[in-house]
Design a protein around this nucleic acid. Structure first.
Length: 589
DNA sequence: GCCGTTTTCGGCCCGACTGTTTTCAGTCG
């Protein structure tokens, strides 16, 4: 059973408790939802933790839920859950996947119309709505019947929440909306919030905050946004639009004196906010997007904040960078004034994963720009060094001596470039395939013709964890291999990546002075933020690379730096912040 | 059912919006 399946089961359990008695089970419901959230966000499979007897390492899993999970993995079911589901039609649960359906609404429809088939339930409800039967039910009406119909249509056509957006897509959508908003004369400030401000690897909704003295007219203007599909909601301080492709854009409007708490609240994450509020409650302060209520002094006015810095300071803590607001220890660190000094884009002094159009019967794709053009861009970016790391020449249709000869010709060209570019260090590198049977695609004699290599997996993704780990460690063992590129192999929204024994890999990297790449390509963002944090704690060093195949790709460095920041990485953790001399020393020894 | 920088008992985030009501229930983030 995968983490997502367990999380869904827990949410169904919470829904079942909600239907049975929301008040009696209030805190069990909360506990199962919290556990589901945390299981979804876990970077380790629960099954693995179960096998290692480490289930209690997941926050939100205590002794009782641990017992239930052990029963689940042992027998495939949980007695206690079956009791919880007793008397509730299984047809309720598929409905919960449709936005606007919660446990109460779903159960009311299912019981009243005696619907019991989970396979046909969505079609059954759609039919009832079409026939006008739902409007007659108490608590429903014509409007909600129409809403149900539309929600089902949007769900079936995939208009709602299918794929999450990649960062560049979300940024350009946000920029488009902000550019539109800025045309309104009463808007003084507009900023993106939510997961986009936290630089999450994928974005669900785009949240934009605006401060103005004329909220009415701003909201009117916003909901008239030309590219909208429809208005989802519109109140006095917020509005939400559905944009083509099933994306939401939410606007939040508050007066300038409350802008600080507004930013804080809608930047999230939800887990960060809940933890922050629980902490503050113990200090008798109640937090919201409008400010802070002091619970000790009755009738005292709301304390307002125009900046986020003042808001956090009032709570007795340092301002927390948005990227690490995930309730992963940042609140405790902010109280103790021990927040990490996160790496910044300006710290980066070189890019080592650069593909060019150098043509030589390659094993994989070429870049579109010349070595000269990529070097020129690196200089514009004020880099001190650049690694030219084309894919290794194909080994399937060239003899060894042919390979030595092409490598040597490329070396000559790069030596020329080194000489003609005195103010940047050009490093002769390769991105080298780790073969299916371990080992790398080019032998020792060939590797003498390059300064250093990046290794990566480009084949046999389904290899099991133990074999894949052996394969990767063997690939990293050669003295010339310094960096493991895109270590998980994932592609956002399309490929999960392969399995690796991360603890083993981290340990190997620390002992053998190898680095893990943080690949800045927006569909990769690989390592993941969670693994960066774990690796950093194990003492692993990183290199942030763009994996550029065109000049413009070199600007993606920003996304890689964001992943590093989300993983709590500091300048000292990232090797390509080193000055040229020290970096070249590391990579060539 | 979880959890601990005033707690191993006694707490558990907070408000927005919609639709169906005429003061509230449900859902969402």
């Amino acid at each position: 059973m995968s983490n997502l399946e367990v999380a869904k089961l827990f949410r169904d359990v919470a829904a079942a408790f909600t239907i049975k008695n929301e008040y009696k089970y209030k805190f069990q419901i909360l506990a199962y939802q919290k556990a589901a959230d945390s299981i979804e966000h876990s970077s380790t499979e629960l099954k693995t933790l179960y096998e290692q007897g480490k289930l209690e390492k997941i926050p939100g899993i205590g002794p009782t839920i641990e017992k239930r999970l052990i029963e689940l993995f042992k027998t495939g079911k949980v007695k206690h859950f079956e009791q919880a589901f007793e008397g509730i039609s299984p047809a309720v649960f598929p409905l919960l996947d449709i936005p606007s359906f919660g446990p109460k609404k779903a159960n009311k429809l299912v019981t009243h119309f005696k619907l019991n088939n989970p396979k046909t339930i969505i079609e059954d409800v759609r039919k009832l709505a079409t026939e006008g039967k739902i409007a007659k039910l108490e608590g429903f009406g014509e409007k909600s019947q129409a809403d149900i119909l539309r929600a089902i249509e949007e769900y079936k056509t995939g208009t709602t929440k299918t794929n999450r957006m990649t960062l560049p897509y979300a940024f350009s959508l946000a920029q488009e909306v902000i550019a539109y908003l800025k045309k309104h004369k009463d808007i003084s400030k507009a900023e993106t919030l939510g997961s986009l401000r936290r630089m999450n690897s994928t974005i669900g909704d785009v949240d934009i905050a605006v401060t103005t003295k004329h909220p009415e007219s701003v909201l009117d203007y916003f909901v008239a946004f030309p590219a909208k599909e429809r208005i989802i909601e519109r109140g006095p301080t917020t509005a939400s639009l559905l944009i083509g492709g099933g994306k939401h854009v939410d606007l939040l409007v508050l007066p300038p004196q409350q802008f600080g708490s507004l930013l804080q609240h809608f930047t999230g994450s939800k887990h960060h906010n809940v933890a922050l509020r629980e902490y503050s409650l113990k200090k008798h302060m109640s937090l919201s997007e409008r400010g802070i209520k002091l619970l000790d002094k009755k009738g005292s006015p709301l304390v307002e904040f125009d900046t986020e810095e003042k808001f956090y300071k009032y709570l007795g803590m340092d301002w927390i960078p948005p990227e690490i607001r995930e309730n992963q220890g940042e609140i405790e660190a902010a109280i103790k004034h021990q927040l990490p000094d996160l790496i910044e884009l300006k710290d980066i002094k070189g890019d080592l994963h650069i593909h060019t159009n150098y043509s030589w019967n390659s094993s994989h794709d070429y870049g579109s720009a010349s070595m000269e053009d990529m070097i020129k861009r690196a200089k514009e970016l004020k880099y001190e060094y650049i690694g030219l790391s084309d894919h290794n020449p194909s080994i399937s249709n060239q003899t060894k001596s042919e390979i030595y000869s092409v490598l040597s010709r490329r070396k000559e060209k790069i030596e020329q470039l080194k000489k003609s570019n005195k103010n940047i260090r050009v490093i002769n590198m390769l991105e080298l395939d780790i073969l299916t049977l371990g080992g790398v695609a080019i032998d020792d004699k060939g590797l003498e013709l390059v300064d250093a290599v990046i290794v990566s997996i480009h084949s046999s993704f389904s290899t099991n964890k133990d074999d894949m780990t052996k394969r990767v460690l063997k690939g990293l063992s050669h003295p010339k291999t310094k960096i493991l590129a895109h270590p998980t192999g994932r592609l956002l929204n399309s490929r999960a990546g392969y399995s690796l024994d991360w603890e083993k890999l981290f340990d190997f990297c620390v002992k053998n002075n190898k680095a893990l790449e943080i690949n800045a390509w927006p569909e990769r963002l690989d390592l993941t933020d969670a693994l960066v944090k774990q690796a950093k704690e194990a003492g692993v060093k990183f290199v942030i690379n763009t994996d550029s195949h065109a000049v413009s790709h070199m600007d993606n460095m920003f996304y890689g730096v964001s992943v590093a920041r989300r993983g709590w990485a500091e300048k000292k953790d990232i090797l390509n912040t080193l000055p040229a001399k020290s970096f070249v020393e590391w990579i060539s020894t």
